[in-house]
Amino acid sequence: MAVTPPLKTVGQMRQGDHLLLGYDTDEERETVLVAFLLDGLASGQRGLLLPPAGIPAGVALSFLEAHGCRVDEELAAGRLRVDPHLAGPEGLWDLDEVIRRETRSAVGDGFLGLRVCTEVLRAQAGKELKTLHDSELLLGPVFSSLPVLGICQYDRRIFDETELGPLAGLHHGRVGADAVWRDDVLAITRTFAPPGLALAGEVDDTNVTAVARALHTETARARARAADGARIHLDLHELRFIDVGALRLLAFTALGLYAAGGTLELSGVAPHVQRVMRVTGWDRVPGLHIAPEGQEGEGP
């Protein structure tokens, strides 16, 4: 389940970007689209959703409601639009023309540009995805010349990585959710399959509070997902250093989850971190699971 790191986070996108979003869960898709569309509203750009099926606009955008967006009002004002173009059997053929026209129309209506999100059903992608490839290829010049930025969504449960790789090559790379935290030495990002957080870099007394905050928020999400037994996964593959204070926080967080029937699962725990956890007894804290991987030999 090696995930190619996203080139950009959604918050770093700017005009001209044409990025691919490969998502594992609906939560991941919605997390990225919420940021993308709300950033557009904040930036004076129109948001355009091209869904793969003919769904009522209010329903297609209903995931924005939970983030304080009044979808009906935004649709009525033309700040958000939903176009069922891609739900038609020939939708991909003139996608470049549609986006070109929509961008000009947004500018004509007084917006500073257009943010577009597309998604197609596999059935429309053509034999060996040929139609899809051709369509993506034609989008290049549109994004490079007009005030538009876009995300093409691909469900990774339907398109596998051998298909997404070449498709990503027709974009300016990939996009992922915004980092929860980023400083000189640490990046905290959300993961969606399994749901949790990934820590990359170093955690010490300067940024342990950011980890605590992220874990706290993630705990609330996990509880919302599963009333009985919140499970949080922490991906530590890219973690180079974590100090005792931060490991103590993980142990306490695990104990808290355990008290409510939940667990904190750690993967990618480096041998030197496992050694510290063994010496402190934190490897045996109830609720804390360390995924076995690699072998470790403790020195004499």
């Binding site: 142990a251 402190t280 007894g281 045996r284 804290v285």
Partner: peptide, 19 residues
Amino acid sequence: LPPEPVAVSGHGMWLVRQL
């Protein structure tokens, strides 16, 4: 002396001596 895993402090110096 080994601190309890759930103690609020004491793991640092314990670890220093162990490693």
